[in-house]
Nucleic acid binder design. Structure first.
Lengths: 332, 332
DNA sequence: TTGCGATGTCGTAAATGCTGGCCATTCTGA
DNA sequence: TCAGAATGGCCAGCATTTACGACATCGCAA
């Protein structure tokens, strides 16, 4: 690759001048500028951003780490982030961890090595200490959707307890009294909050939460499948089930279909998080949805502010959930 | 940030030794190694990858540029790529262009500046010259799904003409004779091939293709909406419609629902590309699907080979499409 | 006309964090 | 004793930016 030296030589000026032209700085004569720009154009020179970041000590890059790139919840968030970043002419680099802690560690370490300026993280970790050593401790960090235990940082999440309440209320109003719950990945804050919200909401209606009605899950399809099977196998199975996220609901739906069970005929099903595209094809699942794109935008803004050094105290933005009633439930 | 010099000083060795320890090279005594590693651990040192790439002249990174991150077709492909990359310990960096040429140019330029080792590109460009100046001309490049005119590079695509044939055959067999087509983004190879396949397949059945049955599109939701509306407004509307991709089909479906038209009752609808998650929720749309994840894996492999300097001739891998029959069509 | 500070233009060289070739020294075993 | 092998330091190089300094030019007051 050509370097700025080659350009300088071709243009008969010094590297400093070329650098000035490239970065549109003052103090270069119009003719000189023109001459250099001509060479730049002709050679299609693209400066080495790595070398630049070495001296500038910043990369103009923000990183986003998500646990599941195929989940529309996260891709929509990413779009929100990208829009904000583009406005500040920052690049966004996306990493996917497949809900796997080791993947996440590697991804974060790689990003830290690249010296990204800020990190937006939807972590697969339960506790901060599981990833802390992979993080540079001075990096502007915004936690997204999930808060690993003991990791202090800005946080954008939604009101999971409130969302759980909305769902339980809805099912209760339809007459359901045995309401099952397929939990999210153990140890993840979001999963915990949703479960707690569910328990609290049940109590609010004078219902006693039963252990057997709460199946473990993992936020993935298999968790949904296994969860629903477990609940169905109960002596007294639930009449309605809440899945802790959209993907689990899909897994559950698959299992139900294989067992030739009808939703909502044989069972009512709702979940957290909307399914963007899918719900356009077929507005089926009733869900508690979050303002996804906004969440991304807010996360990016927090990161940017943190980067700019404003406000040093920890901030937490909580988004309200909304019930989108469709047709996966019936009155009993 | 601490640098390798700081570590060297703390450990009382030279930077070279620290470098050797970090990279697990030979010729460093066990005690020295242990001593350095201890410091490394304590300080949580993460080497600056940018500086490293400066001297090594490679970044161990492969970039993927896609036009629509919310389209499951592309996210699945990305997963295929990631798996291959992970095996070679390469990082993948993902960029999203929202089907916008200017976005794409910026993204590519940014990636070139970062000196990524290889680029996998599903381009929004019609012609190679629209983006050529943003590309380093020596970069290992693999085109994905789409081939901008005049851009010579390895290519992984699917058999779009064959796919169109499959869809037309299917509809024809169901008795449809007026088959509409909502095209993809004008100028994109994939769109062109699908349309040509459609025309050819019609002729193959002795049907004369009619201009009015071919609506323009953009591979996006709006294109689907407008396309279907156009077709419905015809004096003699089609009884079946093929959308050039999954997202357009969703747009079409939305418009149909708003007009209170039933699929397949009032109209049969099929499209290219499957809808992963969505089709799990509700196996509705009949589609011509591609082996998505494999496409990603193959693309990554081609890039890697190109990077390794093997095989200098241009390669093209064409994947066969499969009909996934569901229930968006009826016999007429 | 001269003098001089301000301003504009450009080059030199150091610095950034890392690798790797080369060389010097020490150690090992025959 | 001596050939290697093992160990580790020095320094150049990678592609940038930027502080600093050298000149040139200009405006304007003396």
């Amino acid at each position: 690759m050509a370097s700025i030296y080659d350009i300088a030589k071709m243009a008969g000026v010094s590297v400093a001048t070329v650098s000035r032209v490239i970065n549109g700085e003052k103090y270069v004569a119009p003719e000189t500028r023109e001459k250099v720009q001509k060479i730049l154009r002709e050679t299609g020179f693209i400066p080495n951003a790595n070398a630049k970041s070495l001296t500038k000590k910043k990369t103009n890059t923000m990183a986003v780490v998500v646990p599941d790139l195929t989940n529309p919840f996260f891709t929509e968030i990413i779009r929100g982030i990208e829009q904000q970043a583009a406005q500040r002419k920052m690049a966004v680099i996306i990493a996917n961890t497949d809900e796997d802690l080791e993947h996440e560690r590697l991804a974060i370490r790689s990003l830290m090595g690249r010296r990204v300026d800020a990190l937006i993280l939807a972590s697969a970790a339960r506790a901060g200490k599981e990833i802390r050593s992979s993080l540079r401790d001075d990096i502007p960090l915004v936690l997204l959707d999930r808060k690993p235990n003991g990791l202090e940082a800005d946080l954008v999440r939604s009101d999971d307890r409130g969302g759980a309440e909305i769902l339980v209320d809805y099912l209760f109003a339809l007459g359901h009294r045995r309401i099952g719950f397929i939990s999210g990945k153990a140890g993840i804050s979001t999963a915990k909050n949703r479960l707690e919200g569910y328990v609290a909401a049940l109590r609010g209606h004078g219902l006693e939460p039963e252990q057997e009605l709460m199946a473990p899950g993992d936020f993935q399809r298999t968790g949904g499948r296994e969860g629903i099977l477990k609940l169905l196998a109960l002596a007294q199975p639930p009449t309605a089930v809440i899945a802790a996220n959209n993907i689990e609901a899909i897994g559950a739906l698959e299992a139900l279909r294989e067992k030739k069970l009808d939703v909502p005929g044989d069972l009512s099903l709702v979940c957290f998080d909307d399914l963007e595209l899918a719900s356009q094809v077929y507005p089926f699942l009733t869900v508690a949805a979050q303002p996804v794109k906004t969440m991304g935008a807010v996360a990016a803004q927090l990161a940017l502010e943190r980067l700019a050094g404003q406000s040093s105290q920890r901030r937490e933005v909580v988004m309200r959930m909304t019930l989108l009633e469709r047709r996966s439930c019936r009155r009993v």
